[in-house]
Structure formats: C-alpha cells, structure tokens
Amino acid sequence: MTRRTGGLGYLLLAPAALWLVLFFVVPFYSLVATSLFDPAGSDFRGYEMTYHWQNYTDAVQEYWRPMLRSLWYGALATFFCLILGYVLAYAIAFKAGRWKNLMLVLVIAPFFTSFLVRTLSWKLILADDGWIVDTLQTLHLLGEDGRLLVTPFAVVMGLTYNFLPFMVLPLYASIDKIDHRLIEAAGDLYANPVVGFFKVTWPLSLPGVISGTLLTFIPASGDYINAQLLGGPNQRMVGGVIQSLFTDANDYPTAAALSVIMMVGIVAMVLVYVRRAGTEELL
C-alpha cells in the first residue's frame, strides 16, 4: 500500500486524537492529581493539593485483599477462557468447514444481550433452589446447605463467561492464519497429534494467545459486576471498592490512588507486550 505523506494525514487523525487526548489522557492526569489530594477534603468542600503520597500506602494497606483477589480471579478466569476459547477457536478455524462464518456469528451473538441481564441470568441458574445446585446436592458433590452463589466459583464462572469472546476472536484470527501444511508435515514426520500440536500449532498461535490473554485479563480483573451480582462481601473485587469509594463514600483520593495503581499495572503489561510485538500488531 502506498502511503501519502503530507498534512492531510494529520488533519484526518486530529479530531479523534484530540478527543482521546482530552477525554482519555488528560483525565488520567486529573486522576493522578486527585490521588495526591489531602484526604481531609470532600467533593463539595473541595480538595487541597498537598502531594499526600500517603494515600497510596493507606489504600494498599486497607485494600490489599480485594486487589490481590482481583488479580487472582482475573487470572483464573483468563485461564479458563484460554482453555474454552482455544477449543472453540480451533474448531472454528480448522474443523467448521462451511459453517465457519455461522459459528463466528454464534460466538458473538449472545453478547449482544446486555451484560447485566446475562449476569443476572447466571444468578438464576446458580441459585440455591436452582436445578444445578439440586443435582449437585443429590449427587453429594455439594453439601446439604452447600451453595454456588456467593462463592468464588460463581464469580470466576461469571467472569469466564462474560469475557470469553475477548479470548476467542484474537485466538481465531491467529489460528486461522496457520498454514495447515505445517501441521500435516509434522504428522508426516511421525509426530503424534499431541506432539504436533505443542510443537507446531501452539507456538504459531502464540500471538493470539498473548493478545487474547491481555484483552481478557484486563477487563476481567477490573470488573466488579460479576463479583457484586454473583458473589458476596468476601468476593469483593477492587473495581467495586473504587466505585463505592467514589459514589458512596465520597473518598476521592483513596479511590483515585487505587485506580492509578491499577492503571500502572496495566500499562506495564501492555508495554511488555509492545516490546515483544510492536505497535502495529496491537490493533
């Protein structure tokens, strides 16, 4: 593709770039500033800028549990998404034949129904008097008053479910590009299918694995809807803490500090990824 040089490029890019700078980059500066305000203020009395770095240590001290929990749940959900998503993406790319397009559409279709409505639907499915809990109790896999709702299981399951397409689509894009002859060649050279998979298919699909993992882990660990609707106070995730500090407790500095910590972690992850793959591969 021939690329033209000159001013027009800047002109076309400018409105979008400006919007993102104004409402994505600049707000982040406000967030950092807010995180250093004197915690004694409030949103209507106003805050004073005192470079109160202690907000960070306070935030970590008080909320390290939900923070670690978010990472843990996010990692678990990403792991399950990777397994389910890989099977699905592989099936679509190599086994679906003429049903390929239909299956791709079916991957995305359920996610056009509202995120919250879908999550509430899981609440119903996993409910204490629902048939899943009943069946598990009859089979003695779950105690008499055992439950699925308000457990880490429910939250991780909800996260896995809700973020699955973020994993499937990049994986599919990567697996679909693999030259089938390479896998056949492995077979011709007496690699059994399992060895062939781990020596050929898996390494070639790594770009998809990495971007899928990134795109799943980030929103999953930042989410709090699943934790709130399917979990209880013991499953609280850091997103929920930030939200309630902003809207209920009106403790802006602590909330901002927690947000900044999260963002710094994410940026670090993205930078590691960019180092490996370059910016053109991002999109």
Partner: peptide, 15 residues
C-alpha cells in the same frame, strides 16, 4: 481498549 473501564470512568469523573 486495554484500560480497565473502572480506571477510565474514575479518571473522567476526576476531570
């Protein structure tokens, strides 16, 4: 696309 929603939301609110 990569930033968690909660971070974007709280940044905008701060702004």
């Amino acid at each position: 696309m990569a930033a968690p929603e909660i971070v974007m939301g709280s940044s905008l609110l701060a702004l």
